[in-house]
Design a protein around this nucleic acid. Structure first.
Lengths: 163, 163
DNA sequence: TGCTGTTATATATCATGTTATTGTTTAACT
DNA sequence: AGTTAAACAATAACATGATATATAACAGCA
């Protein structure tokens, strides 16, 4: 069966990028599921931003992550529910709500940084390592690579290879 | 403000691809809005699939577009509501529901193929034309290019350039 | 000081993807 | 032929992005 999105080339590049991105996130989610971490893969960028930049108000988080503010508000509420972040008031501006990692959030990020993120990053980097040439060719290679072995299997293979 | 998704590199490649894809679709949507076409940009791949492959059952549409079957069911219902596609029964298998373009759908696709799609494709192709090198660099160049001039402005500029 | 406009966040609603489940129809055995 | 398994599509429920709008706090100026 012909892959129409692929055939349409640049015309549907947006759909195609979204499709690959969703695939990657779903694969990564399976890695996290196996580790019984209670956070969706899509929430990690927010945690990583707080880790890198320290406590931030909602608006600046939105800027740092390049997504719209209501998305941040929702993610923060979710992560606060899980006890991973907390929101406090700004001293000099009562409108701003400063988001920061809790102790549990801090621990989760530290563990992820040490044990999980490097593996995922390596698996994705390997997937993309030998790519070159025009963008559409690289995307096709990624799609083919993911079809042959999704990220979670690549991570697992790497773990199994350790004696 | 640091762009965290970009800084995280391969680790958040999925989020980044989704983000760029959404940007591209939103830009394209603005092109369509200006033309007062009553269809979301994300529905065009489905119409294009029917145009290219002829009437198809739901499951094969899902395969051709690489998205899950419930997504197709919903899009088909939406496009049927708009009178652009219709669903019929298969002769020999009562489970299959064959989706095909209506007269209006046919006309919409023909106009789009002639007047709209080439312009969008050209704008996106130009955006990506000079890219080379590693994937992440190409993605950064696309992000920068879209920030400098979104697709809808590129299309409009091309139209305005016609004397 | 009090009005006005701006800024920061929250909320509502929508779009579009996902997985899990259900109901029907078809196919395949025994 | 009758039971069981598989395939197809619809539905439910959720995730996560968007835009538009409401609310509250701040800032500037008459």
């Amino acid at each position: 069966m012909e892959d129409i999105i692929r055939s349409l080339g640049f015309l549907c590049l947006g759909s195609r990028l979204k499709r690959i991105g969703e695939q990657l996130q779903a694969d990564t989610q399976r890695v996290l599921d196996r580790l019984e971490v209670p956070v969706q893969s899509s929430q990690y960028p927010l945690l990583a931003a707080l880790d890198r930049l320290g406590p931030l108000p909602v608006g600046e988080l939105a800027q740092a992550l390049g997504i719209a503010q209501p998305g941040i508000t929702r993610s923060v509420a979710l992560l606060a529910e899980l006890g991973l972040v907390e929101v406090g008031q700004s001293n000099n501006d009562q409108r701003r709500r400063i988001v920061s990692l809790t102790g549990n959030g801090r621990r989760l990020v530290d563990v992820a940084k040490r044990d999980v993120w490097p593996r995922i990053e390596k698996a994705v980097a390997d997937l993309c390592a030998d790519l070159s040439g025009p963008l559409l060719d690289q995307l096709a290679a990624i799609e083919d690579g993911l079809a042959a072995a999704p990220i979670d299997r690549r991570v697992q293979n790497a773990i199994d290879a350790v004696p």
